[in-house]
Simulated scan of single mutants.
Amino acid sequence: MEINENTKEFFGSCHCGNVRFHCKLETELLNTETLRCNCSYCLKVRFWEIIVCPKDFKLLKGENDQGNYLNGSKVNDNYFCKGCGVNTYSLIKMEGVPNAPFYAVNVTTIEGITHEQLSKLKITFLDGATDNWQNEPKYHSHI
């Protein structure tokens, strides 16, 4: 997913506010693609991501308040707040994943998105469980 010239800055944070970031996304959120993956990590933490180019992401606060978990691939950095445990974003560097490296920001940590907007976001389901990133998994309503 490419960010076009029609972008807007958004702020996000973990639950306790120790980790804060900003990123640029399409102004019309309802047209922005979001992703849900069935890999063992994303499934367990219920990670719902939106892709952000590295140049469009900046950590504002909390570098020392974050933990970093390397999941099974041992190359993707999954950041979470040490205080409240919320997974705020990941840095995806794994070979074979389209557009890598990129930040995968947890949609639910972006401030100002209403429940109505969240319910209308477009979701693409990824089959990370079998490294079949180009195709939707057979079962996905649970992710």
Rank of each mutant, 00 (worst) to 15 (best):
C42T: 02
S13W: 03
L91K: 13
G62F: 09
V19T: 14
N18E: 14
E63N: 12
F102I: 01
F102K: 00
N87C: 06
M94Q: 15
L35P: 00
I110D: 05
T108Y: 01
I123N: 01
C37I: 03
C39N: 01
E5M: 11
H115E: 13
R36G: 00
G128T: 06
H15K: 02
N38D: 11
E2K: 10
A129P: 05
M94N: 11
N6G: 10
P101A: 14
C37Q: 00
I50P: 01
K8H: 12
T109Q: 04
T130I: 09
N38I: 00
G85M: 07
L126P: 01
F47P: 00
V107H: 01
G85Q: 09
L60G: 05
G85R: 08
K58C: 11
Q117L: 04
N78H: 13
I123C: 07
C81K: 04
S119N: 13
Y69W: 14
G96Y: 08
G17C: 06
T7N: 12
H140W: 04
H115F: 04
H22I: 03
N87G: 03
G128H: 04
P137V: 08
K24A: 13
K58A: 13
R36K: 15
T34V: 09
L118T: 05
H15A: 02
H22V: 06
F47E: 00
I143C: 00
T27M: 03
G72T: 11
Y79I: 07
E2M: 05
V19G: 10
C53K: 13
W48E: 02
V86A: 10
N76Y: 01
Y89I: 05
D131R: 15
R46V: 04
L121V: 10
G96E: 07
C16I: 12
L25T: 05
Y103R: 08
D131W: 10
E2L: 07
K61F: 06
S90Q: 14
V107E: 02
F21A: 06
R20N: 13
K58W: 03
L126R: 02
N71W: 14
K55M: 12
I143D: 00
R46N: 12
H22T: 11
L29K: 00
C53W: 05
F80L: 14
C14P: 09
